[in-house]
Design a protein around this nucleic acid. Structure first.
Lengths: 113, 113
DNA sequence: ATCATGCTTAGCCATGTCGCTAACTATCGC
DNA sequence: GCGATAGTTAGCGACATGGCTAAGCATGAT
């Protein structure tokens, strides 16, 4: 039943935060240091560190330390499970669309009230 | 900068919970009553209600009440923003892949330690 | 009218999340 | 070595989340 899917939960949770998404978008341009990432967010370093470790645990970014500088970069294939799940769901959902159509129409009318 | 994107945050957060994902998968088969949804989860009704309202606020399901029975159904197009965001990210990420490749390789070697 | 059913509300508890400050460690430049 | 820089750790406070029970309300069946 795919009850236990820690990967997806970690990924979705990591993506649920606007700050983390903006960090990802920022990292998509080019790898960056922790301080560089903190700048645009307006958040303190420890806070950003936390976000980064959430992203790293979800596998969305990889980091490496060179001297006293930690560099962060995205891990592009990390989004694959999300994409896969989405595709699966869409497949199922659309397969049942005909059956749902009438029902949804009803709901639409009712939910105006 | 797309800083404020409550939609995406709500969606991702709703999807971050295994129980909620299993409810969605269950609803993909056919609309169902609250009690029907509670059954497989092993959770109490109020708990399931909470999950349902999270899903509903995220726009992932729609519900309607007929007599004392509330029926829930998926809203297929609700996943579109997620899909769109994913597509955008993939586009950006892949565009920079060449630049990242070498870096990621380095990280891989280092992160063994 | 009465009772069972189905949902809802209120409220409790444990835990998790997200922000912070303060203090610490580790490098780099001089 | 000394001070500045980059990151890290520890711990706090406010609030959100996810589970529960208990009690309430509305509807359907008898």
């Amino acid at each position: 039943m795919a009850k236990h899917d820690p990967d997806l939960s970690l990924l979705f949770h990591a993506l649920a935060d606007p700050t983390r998404r903006s960090i990802l978008t920022r990292l998509a341009e080019t790898p960056a240091r922790v301080t560089d990432l903190a700048g645009p967010t307006g958040l303190r370093l420890p806070t950003v560190m936390r976000h980064l470790s959430v992203l790293e645990q979800a596998g969305l970014i990889a980091t490496s330390k060179d001297g006293r500088i930690r560099t962060c970069a995205i891990v592009p294939e990390a989004l694959d499970p999300v994409r896969t799940w989405l595709d699966e769901q869409r497949a199922i959902w659309e397969a049942r669309l005909d059956r749902l159509d009438a029902f949804v129409m009803n709901v639409m009318k009712e939910s105006v009230e």
